[in-house]
Design a protein around this nucleic acid. Structure first.
Lengths: 188, 188
DNA sequence: TTCACTTTTTACCATTTGGTAAACAGCGGT
DNA sequence: ACCGCTGTTTACCAAATGGTAAAAAGTGAA
């Protein structure tokens, strides 16, 4: 759980005792590649912290096609927070793009922390805001051509390229898998 | 200020007295089309609530081209909140796409509300989360062709099309102004 | 190893989009 | 009205991308 502790401490100071209390409310969860952390059409039940692996955030457009909206990496919070908080069903899913190792908090445990740790809400909100901020930025720039988008993806996510199926990356970049394959050939 | 009061009440209950206190901390601000609410490279100094008008969120890519990332409409909070809170300079700007009428809160006033109104932090965080959520979703889908993106834009933002310059919409959709013009002709 | 299955690469052609340049339309100021 | 400025539309051709289909490469199980 050490990674989680270090992550939390980036947002504010807590005593060793308080940190132990937080960790005690989390559970380790391993999920296999392609399984879902939360599903489209369902209420998100957990907040997660990624210890190892990559999570893919996406949704189905009105033609039923899968759209990949973001990749979430190690040492990040992962949650569809607005729907988690409001207990509303989400239009998005969060899916393991690789085998993942997480620390998860049930809604009950997550809310309890607000009551038993003073200062937690402040830290929590900063963490959630960063989580949402990271989801919202750094996406591929729609006005750039596919080659540029791919090269920028390599810069922003160098560790992802060899870990997740190419089809997910193509979906993220907004091109067909064939086009991405051609782009990769032309770059060499 | 009635719009702001109604907006706040969607996130939690407050007394008439408390609402008046909140309103008293806000200032009316009118900004002309094309002027900036916050600028790229600078620290965001205010949280705003849009009473009338449309704000355009965007940034410069590494080639110096303007990228439009979102449009923010009436009755929404507008802020680069993560950088506002941390007093860090933003890579994005928020620009009036039409003449705008806002209610704005300085950082000082915004923070004072947390001390003088119990329950405000809870409401505030929900408002900020929604603000960030709206910024992050509903963007044009990169894998769809430009015509589809334009048609979906019309559905999602029917009131914007005749209010802002076409070049902003083209930038948002990721096409040149000429291509957008051709698309509009072909649809009729 | 071989087989079955999935992922990735290639190839071909039709379609879409970008780049450049010019014409056209709208609008405010004089 | 006329001018100058800005925003929008057109046109033409080159380049990028999608759709379809098939081949090649990788992977795991028997």
């Amino acid at each position: 759980m050490e990674e989680l502790v270090q992550y939390i401490l980036k947002f504010g100071d807590l005593s060793k005792q308080q940190l132990e209390l937080i960790v005690s409310k989390g559970e380790e969860l391993k999920i296999r590649k392609d399984s879902y952390f939360s599903e489209a059409g369902k209420i998100p039940k957990q907040v997660g912290f990624i210890v190892e692996g990559v999570i893919r955030g996406g949704y189905y457009n009105n033609k039923g096609e899968e759209i990949t909206r973001c990749f979430i990496m190690e040492n990040s919070l992962v949650c569809d927070y607005v729907n988690f908080e409001a207990s509303t069903s989400s239009s998005e899913y969060l899916q393991a793009a690789t085998d993942c190792s997480l620390i998860v908090f049930s809604k009950k445990n997550w809310e309890e922390l607000s009551h038993i740790i003073s200062g937690w809400d402040n830290i929590k909100n900063k963490m959630v805001q960063l989580c949402m901020y990271q989801k919202s930025r750094k996406g591929p720039v729609i006005s750039q051509d596919a080659t540029t988008r791919y090269l920028e993806f390599l810069e922003n996510y160098p560790s992802v390229i060899n870990r997740v199926p190419l089809s997910y990356i193509a979906s993220y970049l907004g091109v067909t898998q064939q086009s991405l394959s051609r782009i990769r050939r032309n770059i060499r």
